[in-house]
């Protein structure tokens, strides 16, 4: 059911999971995503909180430590698989685009 729910990841889900390949405190994720995408993708604090809760429930991340109100998380194998699956899906999308338009892959 969890896989079904996260079959296709939104950009925000994708980048949150990407950040959590290394242990990360929840509050730092927003800044990390911003830096990683040069401000292209913004994750609001409400969205971040709810997505982290959903990922936890789906077993895609796990809580590593709690320091006061500061909680840190890291990706689980389930989350890693979801991230890789999304990466492959995006690659397929890009490949299809290239095949159809005859363009070669460019640096973003």
């Amino acid at each position: 059911m969890a896989r079904e729910k996260f079959q296709t990841l939104t950009e925000q889900m994708f980048y949150i999971l990407l950040c959590l390949r290394q242990e990360q405190c929840g509050a730092d994720i927003m800044a990390r995503v911003d830096a990683l995408t040069a401000g292209r993708v913004a994750v609001g604090p409400g969205t971040l909180y709810n997505l982290l809760e959903s990922f936890l429930q789906a077993g895609m991340i796990r809580e590593t430590k709690v320091e006061g109100r500061k909680r840190s998380y890291v990706l689980t194998p389930v989350g890693q698989a979801a991230l890789e699956e999304e990466y492959r899906r995006l690659l397929r999308v890009a490949t299809d685009y290239e095949a159809c338009t005859g363009t070669e892959r460019q640096e973003p």
Binding site: T10, Q12, M30, D34, A42, V43, G44, P45, G46, T47, N50, L51, S54
Partner: peptide, 14 residues
């Protein structure tokens, strides 16, 4: 400031 809710589907569910 970045809006508190940035994902419509998540906000709706919430």
């Amino acid at each position: 400031a970045v809006p508190i809710e940035t994902d419509a589907a998540v906000q709706l569910q919430n």
